[in-house]
């Protein structure tokens, strides 16, 4: 694991970095709604400009911001071709077997590709500018009203926070097991499908046993200290949104309303 994937948090001190994570998440949802509802090609031009402005504000290197979309060229091509050939068969230029390309399809393909591109880059900006822990906290916060319809959100929040604590330990342990089995001569690849399944067992079975062992120890310790899943604990207090959070939210809401009305 010597390489970092796209979309990983990069510390910074821009306006975007400092916004409350829950506010940012809401902003993203508003912007996504607006993008999905944009129909006019000119609208997409405006979006690209707005996005460039956002990346500039967040002081994220453009390469990092675009990284999530950069590797998906083939996917955009696929979207384009699928829509080109199948979207509007009744207006097709020609008909070859099941393929009926049309200009309406081409336009729709471009639209969908642009949409996916914008969605990818926007979410990437959010993820690059927000620590993962703050983001999960934001999810918990936004989902906490679900407790009114009987969803045990506190238990779910506890599970999530425990899961996050387990990630680094299990990553290290898994890497260790992979190396130990490699050193013992394990080969995780095999051309034969059935063998392929069995080839990863030396990795998977110990990983699950080790992980479940840890779960066993932790749950015993929690029960020994009197933790009960059905007791309602005091609700977490979240810091209120500040002026800049409200400003960002209203800007995004305004953008959403404008784009949805104008389309």
């Amino acid at each position: 694991m010597n390489r970092l994937p796209a979309g990983l948090y990069q510390p910074g001190d821009s306006v975007v970095h400092r916004l409350d994570a829950a506010a940012k998440l809401l902003c993203l949802l508003l912007l996504l709604a607006a993008v999905v509802n944009t129909a006019a090609p000119a609208g997409y031009g405006v979006w690209v400009l707005l996005l460039a402005l956002l990346i500039r504000l967040a002081r994220i290197p453009p390469r990092t911001a675009l990284a999530s979309a950069a590797g998906l060229g083939w996917f955009f091509l696929l979207i384009l071709l699928m829509n080109l050939c199948f979207y509007a068969p009744e207006q097709a230029w020609v008909s070859v077997w099941i393929f009926r390309p049309s200009s309406a399809g081409l336009l729709q393909g471009l639209r969908v590709a642009a949409r996916v591109f914008l969605l990818l880059v926007m979410s990437n900006v959010l993820m690059v500018s927000t620590p993962p822990l703050a983001l999960t906290g934001a999810f918990e916060r936004l989902l906490s009203p679900l407790r009114f319809i009987g969803v045990p959100t506190e238990l779910a929040a506890m599970i999530l926070s425990v899961a996050i604590q387990f990630i680094p330990t299990l990553l290290e342990e898994t890497d260790g097991i992979r190396k130990a089995q490699t050193a013992r001569g394990a080969r995780f690849d095999s051309p034969n499908l059935w063998e392929k399944g069995k080839a990863v067992l030396p990795l998977l079975a110990p990983v699950f046993v080790a992980a479940f062992q840890r779960a066993d120890e932790l749950s015993l310790a929690m029960e020994a200290r009197g933790y009960r899943a059905d007791i309602r604990r005091g609700r977490k207090k979240y810091p209120p949104f500040r002026a800049c959070d409200w400003l960002a939210l209203s800007l995004c809401a305004a953008a959403a309303v404008i784009f949805i009305i104008i389309r």
């Binding site: 097991i177 130990a180 013992r184 030396p202 046993v209 080790a210």
Partner: peptide, 8 residues
Amino acid sequence: QFPEIQLF
């Protein structure tokens, strides 16, 4: 370290 984990 802790090689017992590799048994499967």
